[in-house]
Design a protein around this nucleic acid. Structure first.
Length: 589
DNA sequence: TTAGGGTTAG
């Protein structure tokens, strides 16, 4: 797990571009410190007890050892009034080979309202590690970190005397990461290098995965230069970081170079992460190429990998094709799990093909797969979108009855269903219920509610609701504004709608094709063709992508729209087969 | 300590 720091500096770096960043951080260290002698751990020993204290400690230790089956409260009660924090450490000197008794003494001492001294916690952690109980050690180290400043120093000071092992620093490092003191973890890494200790790559991976991309990259380079050999998981964290930032090219570069630069081969997770990113960004071709490549390397795509492809196809409304991939997956011997089923169920829900949904639910049940909150949410959404609120509500109660907790997304799906039906009382009842459950409605919840109000003509109430939403710190998005703009247009207040569009731009979200077409439609319907034309021109200048033909009259624009549609929507209207299944009884999961 | 699924607008 551990090795002494390399005496020569690591030669390889992933990102030459980041070496510059690195050199600016290295001034904190002696320039050639790796080449200098490793410093020894401090020589510490506990202070000596007075005779009276030594006798008390001997009595306590003897009582603990001889009466180990009894409760520490009973054994140690008689010593309580004379017991001081120093006695804990002195007792440990006699109990170091007996971790259970070390734990018992610490537990007895802790509830008595006195802070456990840092030294005692550090020693107890060393004893736990040496006796093969890393979980207890990690808890003790965490306690020490939370309750004492300079606890790290105590662990280092007590290390040698208590004959500890290097893995205690792995646990200390992990405990610091657990409590999110990420800068401190990095400092500890550098500090430990001076003692010749390199924290394990796996412990460092936990840190890496919590850092922002920039810090991730600088830490990767810096630790590597200090002697750490990163592993495949580390590279996967980087790949994931780059993918999350939309930098699939950089992520792909790591995949290609990790073997040569770090000596770690890409695994199924490396490939799946990148494939998923390509799918998210709609680059199916890149995704399928990688899919083939991993197969060539003997890495078989699994349910994760297939699911990314299936998700992309569903998002592109190619759910039948998605199911073909699903079949291909099973043909290759990869069993679909509940996530893959949920993806496909959601795809069919979105295209309104409920018979296919029920068929998949049956299949899922027959495969002994257990639906979770996400599966139920997809189903509830599908039913409510089909106007089947009775069944949607039934499913909602069913999932609660099964002990699954609906979250804000589940509630929003149901709320949206009631809003679409104009049942605003039911929608707000659910909104209150989710608040009582301690759930926090998000911007999507409020957009659904606001849209419901607008559709009932209660635009002012919607406006008020959104003001409150902003007041709660939630950022309204393009959906929210568009729904409000639509409400304003429908009550004939185009002037306010245009003003809201300007407000939206000022607040951040850019007006999109929905925004423009909503207002253009209102202008057209009120005979204000000039304003509609101006707006269309503005929209075209911004190179927006119209998806639908806009009937605003005037052959020039119709021709323009035709050309735009041809240019932007090529290949988007491919025919979808299937969807002709029958049968519609709502299944119980 | 690394990968996948669910909610809003014309």
């Amino acid at each position: 797990m551990f090795r002494r720091a390399a005496t020569t500096r690591a030669k390889s770096f992933f990102f030459l571009g980041h070496r510059r960043q690195l050199s600016s951080q290295r001034h904190a260290f002696p320039v050639d410190f790796i080449a200098t002698a490793i410093r020894p751990f401090p020589d510490y020993s506990p202070k000596k007890p007075a005779i009276f204290d030594a006798e008390l400690v001997r009595s306590i230790v003897t009582a603990l050892k001889q009466r180990r089956s009894e409760s520490p409260d009973v054994i140690l009660g008689p010593f309580a009034t004379r017991f001081r924090s120093d006695h804990v450490v002195w007792a440990f000197l006699h109990l170091r080979s007996d971790p259970d008794l070390v734990g018992a003494l610490l537990h007895w001492y802790r509830p008595r309202g006195r802070p456990v001294p840092a030294e005692a916690l550090a020693i107890a952690a060393h004893v736990a590690v040496v006796s093969g109980d890393p979980a207890s050690a990690r808890r003790l180290l965490r306690d020490g970190l939370v309750s004492h400043r300079n606890f790290v120093d105590r662990v280092i000071y007590t290390y040698k005397y208590w004959c500890s092992v290097p893995s205690v620093f792995d646990l200390l490092f992990s405990a610091i990461v657990d409590i999110n003191r990420l800068d401190e973890a990095r400092t500890l890494f550098r500090h430990l290098v001076t003692y010749g200790i390199i924290v394990s790559a796996d412990a460092c991976n936990a840190l890496l995965s919590r850092l922002t991309l920039d810090h991730m990259l600088s830490t990767f380079s810096e630790f590597q230069e200090l002697g750490l050999r990163w592993n495949t998981k580390s590279c996967n964290v980087l790949i994931h970081g780059f993918c999350g930032a939309g930098k699939t090219g950089e992520a792909h570069k790591i995949l290609l170079e990790m073997e040569g630069t770090v000596g770690a081969s890409p695994d199924i997770i490396s490939y799946s992460t990148l494939i998923d990113a390509y799918c998210r960004y709609g680059e199916l071709l890149q995704a399928t190429e990688l899919f083939e490549e991993m197969g060539d390397k003997g890495l078989m795509p699994n349910a994760f990998t297939f699911n990314s492809i299936i998700t992309l196809l569903c998002k592109n409304e190619k759910v039948v094709e998605a199911e073909r991939v699903f079949m291909e997956m099973m043909f290759r011997g990869v069993a679909p799990d509940h996530v893959v089923y949920t993806t496909l169920i959601n795809g069919y829900c979105k295209s309104g093909k409920l018979p296919a949904v029920y068929r998949l639910v049956e299949e899922m049940k027959n495969s002994q797969l257990v639906p979770d909150t996400v599966t139920y949410t997809a189903l509830i959404y599908g039913l409510s979108r089909s106007g089947n609120m009775v069944e949607a509500n039934k499913l909602f109660r069913e999932m609660v009855g099964k002990g699954l907790s609906p979250d804000e997304v589940t509630y929003t799906a149901l709320i949206d269903g009631y809003c679409k039906e104009g049942k605003m009382n039911d929608a707000f009842y659910l909104h209150n219920e989710m608040l009582q459950m301690g759930l926090v409605p998000n911007v999507v919840t409020y957009t659904a509610l606001s849209d419901g109000l607008c559709k009932q003509g209660e635009v002012e109430t919607a406006n008020e609701l959104l003001r409150e939403t902003s007041g709660k710190g939630l950022e309204l998005n393009v959906f929210t504004y568009n729904s409000l703009i639509n409400g304003l247009c429908k009550i004939g207040n185009i002037e306010q709608a245009v003003k809201t569009m300007a407000d939206m731009e000022a607040a951040g979200p850019c007006p999109d094709v929905y925004t423009y077409t909503t207002i253009m439609d209102a202008y057209c319907k009120s005979g204000k063709m000039d304003q509609a034309h101006d707006l269309l021109r503005e929209m075209l200048d911004k190179v927006l992508k119209p998806r639908f033909h806009i009937a605003i009259g005037g052959k020039d624009y119709e021709e323009e729209m035709r050309r735009i549609n041809e240019k932007y929507n090529k290949g988007e209207e491919e025919q979808q087969g299937g969807g002709s299944e029958s049968g519609s009884s709502v299944p119980t999961l």
